[in-house]
Design a protein around this nucleic acid. Structure first.
Ligand SMILES: [Mn+2]
Ligand SMILES: [Mn+2]
Length: 304
DNA sequence: GATGACT
DNA sequence: AGTCATCAACGCGTG
DNA sequence: CACGCG
């Protein structure tokens, strides 16, 4: 579908047409990975990726000159754009209305990747109710001097805590330096309410493991050699790189769902990359399918 | 990456 | 014909 | 109020 011997192609997906450009441009020069390779990766994983993005506003981070180049954020869907592209118009407190793109299908996915998006960042709430998210999450960030082993240990402790609370939880690598742990919830609580729950759990976790874990958001007071449980990421209008997102890192790492068994045994961020994640997905399917399921979600209303 | 303003 | 700027602006806590 | 933070 994506030619290797030309720089442009017009792809037709049903009645939707997308022009793909600069296909032989090197996005990871040291790895010999081109923009066309990136697009082929997303075609491969689209069946497991698209359900996680559908009906959600997307914040684009564009790297038109590849993983090592300058990047910029873009919220408004730029013109020209295909007339079939779904838009989520979100009014902000300031009165600003932003027309975010939504990735509803493969054509839209390829359109944003062609703009230079390497990773995909979707809202936590769906477009029809942008203040009521479908999950709460814990963003585990190693502070200066901490290792990924510390992140793994923090994830294990967090998992045990959530288990004790009766909260289902799922882990993924970020592809960058940390991990993400998500809890699927029944839609209902506002983003602020979800933030408050994440904050309470995070503070408690840090209190019980003060030598390893911190919830201190302020850079100046953040202890080195710790793992920050960044509950603040659970705020309205914020986003994280999605599952199966490629990251603009030296090895072209992918934010990859992992089992708790794998977290127990240990793993490395760079174990999961653009070159091997499609095979893993073929083998294991979508380990994060429970994030999309109707059943097995935490009901925070009942939780109190 | 693509456009539009400017030279 | 080439070069350059543009492309987010939120919610939350603290001082 | 301005600022830090992501
Ligand atoms: Mn993070
Ligand atoms: Mn963070």
């Amino acid at each position: 579908m994506i030619p290797r011997d030309q720089d442009e192609v017009l792809v037709a997906l049903g009645d939707r047409r997308v022009k793909l450009t600069n296909l032989r441009k090197l996005f990871w020069p040291a790895l010999g990975i081109t923009k066309g390779d990136l697009i082929r990766y997303y075609v491969d994983v689209a069946p497991v990726l698209l359900p996680h993005l559908r009906d959600r506003a997307m914040v684009m981070r564009r790297y038109p000159d590849g993983a090592g180049g300058k990047s910029f954020f873009m919220k408004r869907a730029p013109t020209p754009r295909p007339d079939w592209l779904a838009i989520c118009a979100i009014e902000h407190a300031s009165g600003n209305v932003i027309d975010f793109p939504m990735i509803q299908d493969l054509a839209a996915l390829l359109w944003v990747v062609n703009l230079g998006c390497i990773d995909l960042n979707q809202w936590y709430a769906r477009c029809d109710d942008v203040d009521r998210p479908d999950y709460l999450h814990f963003d585990l960030d190693p502070t200066e001097g901490a290792t990924f082993a510390h992140v793994l240990e923090t994830a294990r402790l967090l998992h045990a805590t959530l288990d004790d609370l009766g909260m289902p939880s799922y882990a993924k690598t970020t592809g960058s330096r940390g991990m993400h742990v998500y809890v699927p919830i029944v839609r209902g609580p506002t983003q602020k309410e979800v933030w408050t729950v994440a904050r309470t759990i995070s503070l408690e976790l840090a209190r019980h493991h003060p030598k390893l874990i911190t919830a201190e958001y302020s850079m100046a007071r953040r202890p080195r050699g710790h793992v920050l449980v960044d509950y603040n990421q659970n705020a309205w209008g914020r986003t994280l790189a999605s599952v199966y997102s490629v990251r603009p890192t030296p090895r072209a790492a992918v934010s990859t769902p992992v089992t708790w068994r794998e977290v127990e045994r240990g793993l490395a961020i760079d174990d999961f990359r653009i070159d091997n994640v499609p095979a893993r997905v073929k083998r294991r399917g979508d380990l994060w399918a429970p994030l999309l399921a109707k059943h097995g979600r935490l009901d925070l209303a009942r939780f109190g």
